[in-house]
Structures are given as structure tokens and as C-alpha cells.
Nucleic acid binder design. Sequence first.
DNA 1: AAGTCCCTCGTCCGAACGGCCGATCCCGTG
DNA 2: CACGGGATCGGCCGTTCGGACGAGGGACTT
Lengths: 215, 215
Amino acid sequence: MTIRVLIADDQQLVRTGFQMILDAQPDMEVVAAVADGAEAVAEARRLRPDVCLLDIRMPKLDGIEVTRVLAGPGVHHPLRVVIVTTFDLDEYVYGALRSGATGFLLKDSGPPLLIEAVRAAAAGDALVSPSVTVRLLRHLAQPRRVPAPMADPLTDRELDVVRLIARGRTNQEVAAELFVSLSTVKTHLGSIFAKLGVRNRVEIAAWAWESGVVS
Amino acid sequence: MTIRVLIADDQQLVRTGFQMILDAQPDMEVVAAVADGAEAVAEARRLRPDVCLLDIRMPKLDGIEVTRVLAGPGVHHPLRVVIVTTFDLDEYVYGALRSGATGFLLKDSGPPLLIEAVRAAAAGDALVSPSVTVRLLRHLAQPRRVPAPMADPLTDRELDVVRLIARGRTNQEVAAELFVSLSTVKTHLGSIFAKLGVRNRVEIAAWAWESGVVS
DNA sequence: AAGTCCCTCGTCCGAACGGCCGATCCCGTG
DNA sequence: CACGGGATCGGCCGTTCGGACGAGGGACTT
């Protein structure tokens, strides 16, 4: 049962390099090597490989968009996709993994990791580059919400206001929902501004989301 | 610069197996191989290895407790710890990673993964077994729901505006940061209101936080 | 060449916001 | 009892926001 692999990268050297590494494995076979996202989609649909190695930076369609098409939600026969990129920017990582990728490799990874990533993807598992994984783990292991002990804590009433503000209510609506007058809401708002050290209601909302007051 | 490794596992065969694999690497050296958690702590403090391979199931102290002692928060000179186990139960995974481990390997992983995991840990990175990673990713990608595929998606420029708005910027400040006029910002705002179906900037912020556009 | 998006910019205007005063009431604590 | 803090109101004023127009240019598709 050989693993059939598709490679998509706009750099010729990368394509051939990956192909040589993978073809040297007895249980792997590169069935296509294309240079842009549109070709990747077409060939993937035609050849139905087990695993797709996709670069992020590609002409026409980038790797994340290709992933969304091939492995995203709602796809009937999703392919395993491993994103391979030079950049490890957070936006790429989360975008890729959200779009349905089952792997994320940096190009500075050695051949062993590439091979293991393909093998893992074929098995339905996922291998992520260690330098990226360490950041994912920090996000996972640090859900502790302690932004600032705040010298002057908000009162209960002020928190009521904060919660409604953070949901997009206007001062009028807050007043109505709390059964107080508009003036009262504005007074509370003033105290909140001072205590949080912010200048407008959107910053209150941002603080509320960050600190977990709303979710 | 050889990587000095400590192995802790209560099974003799596993210890020697790991030791043979790692000692075969030119850049690695096993400095100790112990059979229980108490010994692991003692030897780790005495020899100060670069990486510790810890089993979870061990007499006296289990691998997670050892990790907490050697690499947990508040430790002055934390060691890199890779947890190696036969079981991939979720409790173990999260417990291990929260306690400060920088790697999580299943014993069914091949030697290449073990070697890469040690190398990654020594470099301050983290490698997690693919079969475990895939579950971590699901946890990570799940809360990122897509409430509505949005018939009319935001353009790149509109997303720029959304991100700044969500951080509490005023229209003036957005205009300045994007090098456009106030009118342009307001026009974009209008499109965003229509597309998201919201009525004020705070609801934009709330949408941005919920959808993960900002974090 | 025509059409369609997207980005850009402008004006006018009413509503909402935020800052700054001050004020009353209640309920604790010292 | 006096004091302080929280919650509740009111008025005034300048700034910001948001809606509703119109309009030009650049890029891409047909």
C-alpha cells in the first residue's frame, strides 16, 4: 500500500527536492508535482492522491485556499493536506490548521520530519514542525487569565455595563436593560474608562473579551 | 555540542532501546538511565542533562510530577522534558503539556521521531506524536466555528479596518494607520456594517473576537 | 470595449458618545 | 454621628460616529 503524494510549490528546486526525498521511500510515490494552486486542485481531483504537500505562497491560489477546497468542511472525500512553508507566521499556522490541514512543516525541517509528516498524514494523524508546535502548546497551556490585578476593581454594576457594552449595546439600550437612566449609564462608563485606563467603548469590549468577562 | 540525555523508564527494555537509538547519533549522549521518578529528579539535578525522556508510568514519582519539578513554572534552570508513554489518553497529554513538557511521544513512534523529538527539545522546540497532535489540532480548530459562511465576505482592506476597530482605534486613527482619508475609513465601515449585519463598531469588535480575526 | 469590483475621497446631517460640572440617596464603617 | 463609596440622576458641550448620497480611478473578466 504505497502512499501517493502530490507536491505543489512554485519553486522548481523545492519540488524536485521533495520528490527525490519521498520517491526514495519504498512506501511512497509522488504522482504529481505542480507549480500553482489551480493546478494543485485540478490534479488532486484527477489523481486523488493520499497526501498533498502544499506551499503557502503560490500563484493563483495559495496553499490555504487550496486546502479549504480539498480538505475543508463540507468536502465529500477530503484529502490529507500537509502545509509546507518557509514562514511560520502565526496567521499562516492558524489559517492553515483551521482550513483543514493535518500537518504544518517549515522548510528548514530535515528530510526525516518530511517523511514522517507524510506518513502521519496518510494515517490520518498530524505532524507539526517543532518550532511551531512549541508556540501552539504555549497557547494551549497558558489559558490562565491574569492580565492585571487592577488596583481599582470594577464594581458589580460596572461589570453589568461592561458586559452589555461588549455585546454592542448602545448607552440607551444598556439603560433600558438595566432599568436605569441614560445618565447613570454614562456615569458608570466614566468610572470604567478611568479604572481600565481606556478611552472608548470598543476598548472596553476588547478588554472584556481578553479578560474573559464575556465569551 | 552534543545533546546530553537522561532516560527515565521503569522498563529495562525500553531504557536500553532508547539508549541504543540515541547513542547511535553522533550528536547525542545518554548520561543516565534510571528506573523511577525519584532517581530521575536526583540524577537530573546532579548531571543537568539537556533533555529528559520521561515515562509517565513510573514508581514513586510519575513523569508528570517529575516534569513539574524539573521544568514547571518557577524553576530557575528548567530542563527540556519529553514525555514518552504507551498511552495517549487526553488527561496525560494535557497534564504533561501543562506541567511544562516540551514534547509528547508515543512509544509506537519510530526511531526517527524519537531522535527528532530530542533534537527539537534541545533547541527549545516541541515535537508531539502525530496521533496526539491531530487531536490537539481538533481542539484548536473546533472553537473556531464559522457561524455563517457569509454570503458576502469581507475584502482584505475591510479586514484591515476591522482589526484596528476591534483594538479600539477611532476612525481618525484607523485612517492615519492605513494612510487613507477619514472618508475612506467611513466608507469601508459602511460596507462592513452591511456585510456583517451589525449596527455599530462595538459589534464589529465582538464579531472579530468571536471569529478569531483578532486574538 | 464594456462591465464589475474594489479602493479611494468628498459633503451634509442627525444621532450617539464622552467629558465636565453638580446633586441626591442609601448603606456601610469608624 | 460623620464620613466615604456606590448607585442614581440631570444639564451642557464638543467630538465622534453612522447614514445617505455622489464620484473617480485601477484591476480584472468577459
